[in-house]
């Protein structure tokens, strides 16, 4: 089972790298959906299958991260009229390079912090750290609100993967990670309702009148 878990974690890391290098928002959303679905399979491999807990967790995760959130994101993508991020703070090639450095950093962190127990997969912790670093990087390196939300999703997925490492030892902890999805939902709603396309200095007064209409309803 360990090889399968590690293979899955490699795939997750690959989606992270791909998200770093892609400018088309729709592709980014699809990639985050794939990542969510991959992570959704993980509880089935890690957790003891005698109980219903891991199966339920897997179903909820796939439903949330693999389907609901990407669907919401795509919908607001249509409403916000943006296709791709043209001028990110850090370019796409540089982003991939930084991603590679982040992988190295994650392995270094992993070697510095040996776990008191043997995790289900040796690549779980480095991959989780990599997700966290990637997410944080996207949050600061991209301008478009939608891309920042994807960054947050990636960050969250990293934290979720870390929580899965602990699943056999702590009950009810990973499930908390699902609550973070609430924020993503709120962000997406924010984008959809307020049409936050760019940084704030670009929100112009025209759009804000639309806002008032909404509040009058």
């Amino acid at each position: 089972m360990q090889e399968w878990i590690d293979l899955l974690m490699v795939l997750v890391a690959v989606t992270n790298l791909a998200i770093l290098g892609v400018s088309r928002l729709r592709t980014c959303i699809r990639l985050s959906a794939i990542q969510g679905a991959l992570l959704g399979c993980l509880p089935l491999m890690v957790g003891p299958l005698e109980s219903w807990g891991p199966i339920l967790l897997a179903l909820v995760t796939i439903a949330m991260k693999g389907w609901t959130l990407p669907w919401l994101l795509e919908r607001s993508l249509v409403e916000a009229h943006v296709q791709r991020e043209v001028q990110p703070f850090v370019g796409y090639n540089a982003s991939i390079l930084i991603g590679v450095i982040a992988i190295a950093a994650s392995f270094w962190l992993n070697s510095r912090l040996p776990l008191p127990f043997t995790p289900a997969g040796t690549l779980m912790i480095p991959s989780a750290f990599f997700g966290v670093l990637t997410g944080l990087f996207i949050l600061v390196a991209r301008r478009i609100a939608l891309n920042q939300v994807i960054g947050y999703l990636v960050l969250e997925n990293g934290i979720y993967a870390f929580g899965l490492v602990l699943m056999p030892h702590q009950t009810l902890l990973v499930e908390l990670g699902i609550l973070l999805d609430l924020f993503v939902g709120v962000f997406v709603m924010g984008i959809a309702i307020f049409q936050i396309n760019r940084e704030f200095d670009h929100i112009d007064a025209d759009r804000m009148t639309g806002l008032r209409d909404w509040s009058d309803e």
Binding site: L115, P116, V132, L136, L139, Q148, Y152, L155, E156, I159, F162, G163, V165, L166, H169, Q170, L173, L176, G177, L180, F183, V186, F187, G190
Partner: peptide, 21 residues
């Protein structure tokens, strides 16, 4: 929302690390 929820996410990671400890 954005900055505080990143903070909250990191705090969750901190909580996980505490569990690992």
């Amino acid at each position: 929302l954005l900055i505080c929820s990143v903070g909250i996410a990191l705090a969750l990671l901190g909580t996980f690390l505490l569990a690992a400890a």
